[in-house]
């Protein structure tokens, strides 16, 4: 069963003149225990989508969806408070730049204890403080920090970035979430640290059957860790399917270009040869092209591309393009 089922979600930015459609009819479905990658270049609206799922967008943004279900509950019908109750119980989010997200004036231990839910504690009120401490230490053990005494006493600036990210993950785990949304958890990190974080997330997925939505701007980074991938471009849905399909047989010209432009995936091309790439860069919100937003950069664009294409489904591999590359394999 799908725990998260989003169909045709649109996010509008309300301005004084005309509203801007930042995310245009994106669909996303997540099964239980799945690791899904959400890939797109910066400015493609992937963080907005994540924020819309958690429901932390403010009044400037208007969210519409044909279907927006969380484990069978229609979130669009709930009031803000009810929704917050449902989501905060089951969904947790970790952000990029963990150093910036932690409170620099409080110790790690105090911040972790704050995250521990009251419902998990038992006994009389004088026992609670001790229990909270124990829970915080346990959380740190869970994310692979062995010496919790040192860690709880230190401030965020005294820890390395990878450790801070582990603390963030520990905080997210405090509520025992079903879905963890990781918004570029390893941005600006060294490759060894990146791997530690990804391995931790993978083990949490395996041991606790926690679903993970892994957001990244780089396709080649996430391919090793995900089961399925959704690709977005400039706020539009591009392609979704299993990782193998997306990486080996992409149907959309944009995904094809992403795979071709990664030097890691193309080991067979000669050294110092030109890499395949799309001309230009991602359009800014004020000047979005009509129809398929990839149009001006797409090598396969034709007249029909001024109309946004419908999503086609080939055995679970969804693609949104008039001229998909399906026939070329």
């Amino acid at each position: 069963m799908n725990i998260l089922d989003i169909r045709n979600l649109s996010i509008k930015l309300l301005t004084s003149t005309t509203p801007i459609l930042a995310v245009d009819r994106v669909s996303l479905a997540m099964k239980e225990g799945e690791v899904r990658g959400l890939v797109g270049e910066s400015g493609s609206g992937k963080s907005l989508l994540a924020q819309a799922i958690v429901g932390v967008l403010d009044d400037k943004w208007q969210v519409d969806a044909d279907r927006f279900h969380w484990r069978g509950i229609d979130l669009m019908r709930l009031s803000v408070d009810e929704r917050k109750k449902v989501i905060s119980k089951d969904v947790a989010m970790i952000f990029q730049e963990p150093m910036a997200c932690l409170d620099p004036t409080t110790t790690i231990g105090a911040q972790l204890e704050e995250a521990v839910d009251d419902e998990q504690l038992t006994g009389y009120f004088w026992q609670r403080k001790q229990q909270r401490k124990l829970a915080a230490a346990n959380l740190l053990h869970k994310v692979g920090i062995k010496h919790h005494e040192v860690c709880t006493k230190s401030y965020p600036h005294q820890l390395t970035e990878a450790l801070c990210q582990r603390v963030m993950i520990a905080m997210a785990l405090a509520k025992r979430p079903i879905l963890l949304i990781a918004d570029e958890p390893t941005a600006a990190m060294e490759s060894t640290n990146q791997n530690q974080i990804f391995r931790l997330l993978a083990s949490l997925n395996q041991l606790k059957n926690m679903s993970i939505l892994l957001i990244s701007h780089d396709l080649e980074n996430v391919t090793h860790w995900t089961n399925t991938i959704t690709v977005m471009y400039s706020g539009q849905f591009v392609e979704a399917g299993t990782t193998q399909h997306i990486f080996n047989k992409p149907y959309h010209p944009y995904t094809r270009a992403l795979v071709d432009s990664s030097p890691k995936a193309n080991m067979q091309i000669p050294m110092k040869s030109r890499l395949m790439t799309l001309p230009g860069s991602i359009p800014i919100l004020q000047h979005l092209p009509i129809g398929c937003r990839l149009g001006p950069r797409c090598p396969k664009a034709q007249k029909a591309c001024v109309q946004a294409p419908k999503v086609k489904n080939y055995h679970g591999h969804q693609v949104s393009c008039h001229y998909s590359l399906k026939g070329s394999y």
Binding site: E41, E220, S261, S262, P263, R274, L275, T277, S281, I282
Partner: peptide, 11 residues
């Protein structure tokens, strides 16, 4: 840099 810009830059 983003992947497509990165390959432009490498070229």
């Amino acid at each position: 840099l983003d992947p497509s810009l990165r390959s432009q830059m490498i070229n």
